[in-house]
Design a protein around this nucleic acid. Structure first.
Length: 226
DNA sequence: ATGACGATTTACT
DNA sequence: GTAAATCGTCATA
């Protein structure tokens, strides 16, 4: 029987490979409860898999293990939050067994709860007095962390146990139109930059980078087929 | 101690 | 489309 809504997903949900997790996270609800009790949430509509020490684009490439990426080596269900470009945070869901640095980056959400608070947190980066469109709130890995007040304080959070950051079944179940493309923003990662390890809900306007028109062939590829 | 570099976002031509 | 912003982190010395 399905779990009731409003309950954090259990550890077993995260104990799988990064590609399957990237797919099964689509449609789930990422929930952040602020210190004042306000609940912010959004449906996950875009993810990227980082497939371990062999993945040139991963922070754990070659087994690199430092204070910064230590959470990648933790048990399934751990949040890996990192700071980059001197101004942005990004949040990952760690999977696989402890000691094996596999993770899924959450790249975009469709905001569901707490939109006004998200606007405040995002700030009026455009002009004072101007409101962000809904599709500007969480349409990128840095944006969604800002909107949900996710920073390094939450690095290492156990999503299966915490009451500040966790994941629930989404209100609409699994999306039916998922697409698969190469990952975004990778510089010199060789062949790893072109592998199709990004998944997104094709029809959803809250994604960071839409699927290119013409290239509808990115639909439905079996996991493990590059 | 120092320098190069980002799993990005925003503003601007 | 291109470029600037901005600083923690890590490799090198």
């Amino acid at each position: 029987m399905p779990k009731p809504r409003g309950t954090p997903l259990a550890r077993r949900f995260y104990s799988t490979g990064p590609e399957s997790l990237a797919v099964s996270l689509l449609g789930k609800l990422l929930v952040r409860v602020l210190s004042d009790g306000e609940r912010l949430s959004g449906i996950i509509v875009e993810t990227e898999a980082y497939v371990g020490v062999i993945d040139r684009a991963s922070h754990a490439f070659g087994g690199r293990r430092t204070p910064r990426n230590e959470s990648m080596y933790a048990r399934p269900g751990t949040a890996y939050v990192y700071f980059t470009y001197g101004m942005h945070h990004c949040v990952n869901v760690v999977c696989g067994r402890a000691g094996d640095p596999l993770a899924v980056l959450i790249r975009a959400l469709e905001p569901v709860e707490g939109l006004e608070r998200m606007r405040t947190l995002r700030g009026s980066s455009t002009r004072p007095g101007r409101r962000h469109k809904d599709t500007d709130l969480c349409s990128g890995p840095g944006k969604l962390c800002q909107a949900l007040a996710i920073d390094r304080d939450l690095d290492g959070t156990d999503l299966a146990a915490a009451d500040t950051l966790f994941i629930e079944r989404g209100p609409r179940g699994m999306p039916r139109d998922t697409a698969c493309t190469p990952r975004i923003g990778l510089g010199q990662a060789g062949e790893w930059a072109s592998k199709r390890l990004r998944w997104l809900v094709e029809s959803n306007p809250h994604v960071s980078v839409p699927v290119p028109r013409r290239t509808a062939s990115h639909r439905k590829r079996p996991i493990g087929s590059a």
